[in-house]
Amino acid sequence: MIKVQNLSRRFGEFLAVAPTDLHIHKQKTTVIMGGSGSGKTTLLRLLSGLEQASTGHIWFDNDSDLTCMAARHLYALRLRMGMVFQYSALLNSLNVYENVSFPLHEHTNLDESLIRTMVTMKLEQVGMRGFEHLMPSELSGGMAKRVAFARALITDPELVFFDEPTSGLDPIAAAVVTRLIQQLTVKTKMTSVVVTHDVAAGLAIADWVILLWQGRVIAEGTAEHIANSSDARVQQFIQGKPDGPIPFSRSDTPYLETLMQVDSHG
């Protein structure tokens, strides 16, 4: 569904995503994992066209290049997409019902009673039925995430991007959301791209795993392939070991040298 060639993103001197080639397979769940600051969210934003690539191409269905597409074509393409943001990104001037029905009101001429039915069904799926009248400011982080989930799925998109879908959710809600992604991918033949550092949930739902470190793909394959990888960096990440080839500190300057500089500058 999405084919990425030589894609990179640089913010000034900082290389957030190194030149990368990858495939997002149609009707499959691709999970992008990696530690904090490994470039997962930047890669997701690049794939969704929210971020401008520094180099490379993103081919959608082999015929449309997202990196050089006119804005109106990109918006037309986004009618086939959905996205769940890490911090929900609900429109805070609208209540839960208005947020979830927003894409339908914007892009369809459906009868209001039908829209209400569809919203109720989606809210039921995420366990938020009965909260239609609440404003985003009245929701907890987990509740807002679930509403965002319902909003992203209301148009039954072909491709959905999930940015940390389980972060901020209690274990039960996280399990429901994880199961929902799995079910929708199978039942509605949806393509999912999930960014997460929740290893257990990621490996459980993934058809394909991409592991990032410092903006580079260090491993990719099926969940089983990744779990059995002999790469020490992969094993350190999936087992959550504090010591290993992936350092905890991101600074290139030795600790002692930094302390000495602080001392000499008073």
Binding site: G49, R78, M81, G82, M83, F85, A89, E106
Partner: peptide
């Protein structure tokens, strides 16, 4: 800040 502008874009609203 709250990514609402990005959310609008992802909902195909300019």
């Amino acid at each position: 800040v709250t990514e609402q502008l990005d959310a609008l874009q992802m909902m195909a609203v300019n």
